[in-house]
Amino acid sequence: MSTQSIPPSTRAVRAIEEASIAPAPSPLKVVLRVASTVWSNGKARIGIIILGLMILIAVFAPLLAPYGARQNGFDRSADASAAHWLGTTAAGEDVLSQLIWGAQISIFVGLVAGLLSTVIAVLVGLSWGYVRGFGADVINFIVNLFLVIPGLPLMIVIAAYLSGGGIGMIIVVVVITGWAWGARVLRSQTQSLRSRDFVTAAVFSGERPFRIVFREILPNMTSLIVGNFFGAATAAILAEAGLEYLGLGDTTVVSWGTMLFWAQNSNALLTGQWALLFAPGLCIALLATSLTLINFGVDGISNPRLREGSKR
């Protein structure tokens, strides 16, 4: 087998000793290269730093927060002071501590729900884009169904139905209502990539459809998928805050959304407690912004030429 399948006319290579043949580059190197690409973009670096800080704050909340999240008994609705930098809530809790503890929920929900809806969008979108015929029509029908149902009412209905489920319930609701749009975007990109010569060439190389979709087509959509992830995470963070603000989540959990819910309930704006409303709102906005900034750097992954251009 081996002697037959190796054709003639190779002078130089025969001379190469087996030992000198180095193995192919490892996947770890590829990941490092991708990471340095994203980092080399100024905007993305700012985004990563902000996101990193927020994650650190969330992780080390027990050390950073001056008080417990639900620890009350302080002066009610107090203004900012040395003891309470951002004042206290109407229930007599420390706002700064709540803000720090609340980061845990918002970031967790954002990342997990974003990841789950992206995974579903990738699986559905890519296979939908590559297959033709009846299978594609079936997927088309299901995705369209999820796209035409208005998101917020559906979210509220599902949340009300699953009431009392806590964070897990919120993640499920966000994922169910959030994957369809990403699937459609990825499907159209798959369809345009499918007709490229290098995909036809992969067929000629004897590749199976599964491998063509996930090794040839998918890497070319990295920026779109990562972009979709950050978009979905942003939407999840906003949806989580929205649902909790409406009181549909577990209102005893401290998150930025429930902080807004309680601030609204206690008419914080009328009593001049701006920090109670603005601090969680700003945090949500900042988190969403950091994710968007990272997306700028992600663009360089799919397009090597863009990357070299940025170095010049």
């Binding site: 399948s5 190469i16 087996e18 192919a24 580059p25 290098f198 992969a202 890497p219 070319n220």
Partner: peptide, 30 residues
């Protein structure tokens, strides 16, 4: 257009070698 911009020359050539000749590892690389 005929080469996947994200794969090295080695990957591009290894795939048909593995798929059609059944060579693996160092043999495929040679």
């Amino acid at each position: 257009a005929a080469l996947n911009p994200l794969h090295t020359v080695e990957y591009t050539l290894t795939r048909p070698v593995v798929n059609f000749t059944g060579l693996k590892g160092l043999d495929a690389r040679r």
